[in-house]
């Protein structure tokens, strides 16, 4: 466990020292959402109607941004092979790196989302659900994305390929995330959506690191 936390700490320190990943993801997220009023027009009703979907799609895209480098640097400087040989199981390594990725890119999105919801004129009834869905959903995005990052390690044009592989797998998360917000905006209970989202997270928490580790083994071999 301490080894696990040390791994998370190492990745966090590396990310913060570079200092760019978190701010770039949030900036991309904000810009992506801000583009929509220019595309569909400034009418408040339309913006309020599409706010939940727009924020969620932007969150998906923002979480893709830094995924490519999740294992890349460790793969290139050889520390991934050391990690694979270390007593820590590779699954734990994947989970630790995914957790660090979420802390760096996912968490800031949750903070920024309500501000964007205000800009898009979203009804305040949906704010709580928005934050809640992102809190459950962004770890899922990082977990699924981790598999993709491990799979495309060492591939030609890995970044583009990564999004091609991962975006279809993101669709259920998008459906339940945006669906929950829509439900609470229409005065319905978002509970079933949230439960399904939480169920997906519960399933992905053991499965995704396992699949990611299987993919990493192919890369390190």
């Amino acid at each position: 466990m301490t080894r696990f936390l040390r791994l998370v700490g190492r990745d966090l320190r590396l990310a913060l020292r570079q200092g760019s990943d978190a701010s770039i993801a949030v900036m991309f997220f904000v810009l992506c959402v801000v583009l929509f009023p220019f595309g569909v027009g400034p009418e408040p009703n339309i913006l309020a109607r599409i706010a939940a979907g727009v924020i969620w799609v932007a969150a998906l895209l923002a979480s893709l941004l830094s995924l490519e480098r999740l294992f890349q640097t460790d793969y290139e400087d050889g520390s991934l092979e050391l990690l694979a040989l270390s007593p820590v199981p590779l699954e734990a390594v994947v989970l630790a790196k995914t957790l660090a990725h979420w802390l760096v890119t996912g968490l800031p999105l949750i903070v920024a989302a309500p501000i964007l919801a205000v800009l898009l004129n979203m009804d305040t009834a949906g704010f709580g659900t928005l934050v809640l869905t992102l809190a459950i959903g962004t770890p899922l995005l990082s977990l699924i994305g981790g598999i993709g990052a491990a799979l495309t390690l060492g591939a030609r044009r890995g970044g583009v390929l990564l999004s091609l592989l991962i975006l279809p797998l993101y669709i259920p998360v998008l459906i339940f995330g945006a669906g929950a917000i829509d439900a609470s905006l229409h005065g319905l209970t978002p509970r079933p959506h949230l439960l399904l989202l939480a169920g997906l997270l519960a399933a992905a928490l053991p499965l995704a690191p396992w699949a990611g580790a299987a993919a990493l083994r192919q890369a390190v071999e």
């Binding site: 799979l151 495309t152 591939a155 030609r156 044009r157 890995g158 390929l161 091609l164 592989l165 975006l167 279809p168």
Partner: peptide, 12 residues
């Protein structure tokens, strides 16, 4: 899309 992703990955 899943098919296309698989084919792209295998050839990458």
């Amino acid at each position: 899309f899943l098919y296309l992703g698989y084919m792209a990955l295998v050839n990458a």
